[in-house]
């Protein structure tokens, strides 16, 4: 492991406790994993421009031009639900593979990939096995994960953390810096309360406050979390009950981008300097809030339309003082 470049720093609340932990499936512990990630080669995908986020259709052919004035890029995928096998997608492993192929085909490789949760449908060991095996197909060296509630099913995330968040003790949040931007992986899918929404919890909020305390307000912040960090539709549980406190710690920053999954569709929201995005699923779409009785898979989607409703997201970061641009690409 080469020495970590001085300009890249990594924060992880559990690192201090995890020395001596066994190695991960990838042969490195979380600390090494984050360190390796920190100097991973620069692609291009966040585009920040004057405080306004732009979304545009990005085909593989567009990438080179977009990359030209960017610092680096990364890709977000989400909600793979490995183990789901019903309408409208009986083979979610195949569509995850397609998503990976699409990322691998980008003309400029992304720096890394983030997966914003619901890797599996039922948190079964064989489903996690499939995720681990298939995501090794990324040419990109590093994939960062945050868990979805499906990944924490039955054991409050124990199995997930042992495999995809090695070194965590069931809490698993982390942060790292990459080329001037500060990335924060939050967990809002544990310890749900009856009638409630997603939640971060007091301990994580305290950690977040400390994590960002020493950062300059000009540091671009990118937050990853599975469930939306704003209340999109409470009736369907699309929100995080204590997200306001988390956002309060981030409001002083000039550029905050929150990337979520969970709702299997693209939604955007701007709130002051904070921009929220939800991603498509690589597995199946869910109808828009309130348009159907319940937020389940949209089984009415026909096979010929499925690929236009699932996909991957590229994010370009041009430079600190210019805006971010986020591009969602369907699988077809």
């Amino acid at each position: 492991m080469p020495a970590l470049p001085a300009q890249y720093t990594i924060e992880d609340n559990r690192m201090k406790d995890q020395d001596g932990q066994p190695e991960t499936q990838a042969g490195m512990d979380r600390r090494k994993f984050l360190k390796c990630m920190a100097w991973a080669g620069g692609g291009v995908l966040w585009v920040m421009q004057g405080g306004v986020l732009r979304a545009q259709t990005l085909s593989v052919g567009d990438t080179a031009a977009a990359v030209a004035d960017s610092t680096f890029s990364f890709v977000q995928i989400s909600d793979s639900h490995i183990g789901f096998h019903q309408a409208p997608n009986p083979d979610v492993t195949a569509t995850l593979r397609e998503a990976i192929a699409k990322v691998n085909a980008l003309s400029v490789a992304p720096a890394f990939v983030v997966h914003t949760g619901d890797l599996t449908h039922l948190a079964k060991p064989e489903q996690f096995d499939t995720v681990a095996q298939v995501t090794r197909g990324f040419k990109t060296e590093h994939t960062f994960f945050v868990p979805g509630e499906h990944d924490a099913l039955g054991d409050n995330g124990t199995q997930y953390f042992s495999r995809f968040g090695k070194g965590s003790s069931g809490q698993g949040w982390y942060s790292f810096d990459y080329r001037g931007a500060h990335f924060i992986g939050l967990i809002n899918v544990l310890d749900f309360r009856p009638g409630g929404l997603g939640r971060l919890g007091h301990e994580q909020l305290e950690w977040l406050e400390k994590d960002v305390k020493g950062l300059s307000s000009s540091t671009p912040i990118v937050v990853l979390a599975h469930m939306p960090l704003w209340t999109m539709y409470e009736k369907w549980g699309w929100g995080t009950e204590d997200s306001a406190q988390a956002l309060a710690y981030l409001r002083r920053f000039g550029s905050v981008t929150v990337l979520n999954g969970h709702i299997h569709q693209i939604q955007h929201k701007v709130e002051g300097s904070i921009r929220f995005y939800t991603a498509r699923s690589t597995a199946y779409p869910i109808p828009e809030a309130g348009t159907v009785p319940a937020p389940g898979p949209d089984a009415s989607v026909t096979a010929d339309r499925l690929h236009s409703l699932i996909g991957v997201r590229d994010v370009r970061y041009v430079k600190v003082d210019s805006p971010l641009a986020i591009t969602d690409s369907a699988l077809n």
């Binding site: 499906h150 749900f192 309360r193 009856p194 929404l197």
Partner: peptide
């Protein structure tokens, strides 16, 4: 999962509240 069943016998009087731990609403 779809089609799965779960049964509980309630022997003692009382009010038993429950929720879905995936969808707490």
């Amino acid at each position: 999962d779809t089609g799965d069943q779960y049964s509980i016998v309630f022997d003692k009087p009382g009010a038993y509240e429950y929720f879905c731990s995936l969808h707490p609403m």
